[in-house]
Amino acid sequence: MCTTLQILKVNPVRSGVARESQKPYEWHTAACLLLDDEGNVFSVGQMNFPKELREKLGGVPPVGTYKAIISFAALTGRRAGEIGPQIIDLVPVAN
């Protein structure tokens, strides 16, 4: 499954220590648009780039348009044990 994602702005990294676990965390996010098949804006929001995706991509990708490859997988963190969708790759789209 894939969808088109447009990254508008990469946000500064937020970091700290989790209250419950006392483990350090980092949130890498970007302001994004989800586009429909015709290229129209379907939704606007903020996307979190988990560590595994950042490692695969070499960090949060720059502003641009991407095909987001989505797969179902076992989730981690607070949702550990659940199966849900996650982006496993972003492929740049030529404009």
Rank of each mutant, 00 (worst) to 15 (best):
G84W: 05
P61K: 01
I83A: 08
E26V: 07
R78Q: 12
S21V: 07
C32E: 00
P62K: 03
L57F: 06
G84M: 01
F72N: 14
E20C: 07
L35M: 09
L90I: 11
Y25N: 05
E20D: 14
E20K: 14
P61A: 02
R19L: 14
A73I: 12
K51V: 11
E52W: 12
Q86I: 06
S43Y: 12
G84N: 06
V63F: 04
V41N: 07
V60G: 01
G58L: 07
V91S: 02
P62G: 13
G45D: 10
Q22R: 12
G64F: 01
L35N: 01
R14K: 14
F49S: 02
F42Y: 15
A73L: 12
G59N: 08
G84S: 06
I69F: 08
K23M: 09
A80R: 13
R14M: 05
D37K: 11
E52G: 06
I70E: 02
V63A: 04
W27C: 00
T29K: 03
I69G: 01
D36G: 10
V13Q: 08
L34T: 07
V41A: 12
P62S: 10
T65P: 00
G16A: 05
Q86H: 06
D36E: 15
V41R: 06
P62Y: 04
F42L: 15
I69H: 12
S21F: 07
K56P: 04
G45C: 08
G16P: 06
Y25S: 02
G58S: 09
K67D: 06
G59D: 11
R79V: 04
N40S: 11
P85K: 05
G16L: 07
K23L: 09
A80T: 14
L33G: 00
Y25T: 03
S71T: 15
E26G: 04
V44C: 10
V41T: 14
P61Q: 02
A68P: 06
Q22W: 04
L34E: 08
G58K: 05
K51H: 11
V91G: 00
P24K: 04
R78G: 11
L57H: 03
Y66F: 13
K23W: 04
P62L: 05
G39I: 01
R14D: 10
G45Q: 08
T65W: 01
E26R: 11
K56F: 07
P12C: 03
K67A: 05
T29Q: 11
H28L: 05
Q22F: 05
L35D: 01
I69V: 15
G16I: 05
K56Y: 09
V44S: 09
K67H: 10
V44P: 00
V63I: 14
R14G: 00
F49A: 03
P50A: 02
V13T: 15
L75R: 03
S15P: 02
N11T: 12
R19Y: 12
K23R: 15
Q22I: 04
D37H: 12
G39C: 06
T65R: 08
L90P: 02
I83P: 00
G58F: 07
Q22S: 09
E26T: 13
A31F: 01
V17A: 03
D89Y: 01
P24A: 06
K23Y: 07
I87F: 00
V44K: 12
G64A: 04
